[in-house]
Design a protein around this nucleic acid. Structure first.
Lengths: 145, 145
DNA sequence: TTCTAAATTTAGAATTATTATAAACAATAA
DNA sequence: TTATTGTTTATAATAATTCTAAATTTAGAA
């Protein structure tokens, strides 16, 4: 599914938050990224456009999006930092513990799993993550040398 | 599946590492815990027995177990810390973002998912985690007040 | 048992991601 | 305009984890 910037910005607005140039840019960067970026990655990407941007603003905006439920916070990619994912549909993340990239891979079973947990857990569910980790083909080759 | 202390200690030995009282105690604490403990939790549990135990030793031992592949490192439980799980069979973790407890729940689909990813990813897989997060029944009640 | 070399533990310092704080700034509404 | 509230910013504080170097322990040989 294609994630739109508008989905994120309208979510913030309907949660009673004002739209600012910084927040709009953070939503856009996140929605258009394939890289499951960290706060620092978004900050670095936007810094050229917003000379005075603060990391705190990036964290605050991401935290708000997570709280609303339109963004998932993904830990455990091998680096010590949180990656953000604007795709909240059930899907599988595949992380390389060497280069720390995270990609999505399609799965025909993950939706059934999601239905099962949703109906049986007894929790008020706020999000999920399915993460597999290992060495990507490129890093496997590098390691052989 | 029941996790045995021996599985962890023999793994360390066959990886060429020496067995020490500290390492044995860390393996035992992890194997016998239901709580998906953090390094700090293991440290606190063992401190009474090992007066001079260092957190660095706990981290080193856990890191070795993760590298060998007999323990999984689970991030993203809502606190900022890594939880460790000696059960490496595919299963679902359910985390409460309020009290930060992690429990296992049974699932009839997670094994199929695991087979699918293992055969299609192209990665050299080292571990996996399936995490759902939300509010446990107790914390839901507390939040209503 | 004693000796030796290598591995391990330890205490504390360093690092790093994230959160908190308070002052400056911007936007909204009366 | 003015008051009010929300937001951004720079910086300080916090906390989990890793690093470092010295002291200790281990396994095995003598």
């Amino acid at each position: 599914m294609q994630i739109t910037t508008e989905r994120l910005t309208t979510s913030l607005k309907s949660a009673g938050m004002r739209m600012t140039p910084q927040r709009a840019a953070i939503c856009k960067a996140l929605a258009e990224s394939e890289a499951h970026p960290t706060a620092a990655m978004i900050y670095d990407e936007l810094r050229p456009q917003f000379d005075s941007l603060s990391l705190a603003t990036v964290y605050n905006t991401l935290e708000a999006l997570v709280k609303i439920g339109v963004v998932n916070a993904l830990g455990g990619a091998g680096d010590g930092s949180i990656h953000y994912d604007a795709d909240t549909e059930p899907h599988v993340n595949l992380a390389c513990i060497s280069c720390n990239k995270i990609i999505d891979i399609p799965s025909s079973h993950v939706q059934q799993l999601d239905d099962e947990i949703t109906s049986t857990s007894g929790y008020k569910l706020l999000g999920a993550r399915v993460l597999y980790y290992g060495l990507c083909p490129e890093c496997q080759k590098k390691q052989e040398n």
